[in-house]
């Protein structure tokens, strides 16, 4: 028995058991409303999980519609922003002397808080199209794109330039051209750094998409406008429809978690045989 307790299997099981146990305890406290008395809130504002689940079940198609509106610009912005950020890093690594400034500039986008970026882009996109839905999506995608660009360019630049010692010397000793060095050395070296950037930009993309939705000016909207998740969270709370609000919150959290899990799976596949850094 002592042998088992010290063994690796036991350690792995307990890594999973303890947090699950903790989660179950919180869940039970919540469902039985003991949590409510601790936090001094009513079940209106904080519905029990079973109620939230039933609301989600009843309105699943509508929720999916809202989810779509939020997810599409998030993914577009993520893809385009990361690609552009990587491109910026590539250019900066080729023109090393002047490139560094470009990276600094792009990374400054990180400094402007999302709450400021979102209205700027919403305004900028006012005349992109007459449909408020498209305008909103375009603005959201742009905000996400800016932030992903910033994160990716810094990390990719490091990945392309921080090489193991003497590796460029080694490539030169085989008389390889700059292009070959790039493809065979710098590019593969930068892959772990891409994932470092994505670990940060995926959660930030979801957050910035949600926050941007707050700032969409619905006064000029059409009747068929379908808001995103963030907007719905805010609106339902303002109207005190708390169960609906929590169902939107749950879906938004699931979105964040799912995207991150997908990223982790993708990362473990791509980095399968590498040494742990």
């Amino acid at each position: 028995m002592r042998h088992f307790l010290k063994s690796r299997k036991c350690r792995m099981i307990s890594s999973v058991m303890y947090p699950v146990l903790f989660g179950v305890i919180i869940f039970v406290l919540w469902e039985t409303q003991i949590l409510h008395s601790i936090m001094n809130t009513s079940t209106d504002v904080l519905p029990v999980p079973s109620k939230i689940a039933s609301v989600i079940g009843e309105n699943i198609t509508k929720l999916m519609g809202n989810l779509w509106i939020t997810t599409v610009p998030t993914l577009i912005g993520l893809a385009v922003g990361s690609a552009l950020g990587y491109a910026v890093a590539v250019i900066a690594s080729i023109f090393t002397k002047w490139g560094g400034g470009g990276i600094t500039l792009v990374s400054c986008f990180n400094a402007v808080p999302i709450v400021a970026l979102a209205p700027i882009f919403n305004n900028l996109c006012k005349h992109v199209s007459t449909d408020i839905g498209t305008r909103g999506m375009a603005a959201k995608a742009l905000v996400v794109m800016m932030l992903c660009m910033a994160s990716m360019s810094i990390n990719a630049f490091r990945g392309l330039t921080e090489l193991p010692p003497f590796s460029t010397d080694m490539m030169k000793s085989y008389a390889s051209s700059k292009r070959v060095t790039f493809v065979k050395l710098r590019l593969p070296n930068s892959v772990p750094y891409i994932f470092t950037a994505l670990r940060v930009s995926v959660p930030i993309s979801v957050i910035s998409a949600l926050v941007s939705e707050y700032f969409i000016d619905t006064r000029e909207g059409s009747a068929t406008f379908c808001p995103g998740l963030g907007r719905m969270i805010r609106d339902t709370i303002l109207k005190c429809q708390y169960s609906a609000a929590w169902s939107y919150i749950a879906i938004a959290c699931l979105l964040g978690i799912t995207l991150f899990v997908v990223l982790m799976i993708f990362e473990s596949v791509m980095l399968k045989n590498r040494q742990k850094q």
């Binding site: 959660p203 949600l210 805010r234 609000a245 978690i257």
Partner: peptide
Amino acid sequence: QVIPILGLAPIILAL
């Protein structure tokens, strides 16, 4: 880290 806390601002206000 992964949950969009910033997006949950309204509910925290309500709570």
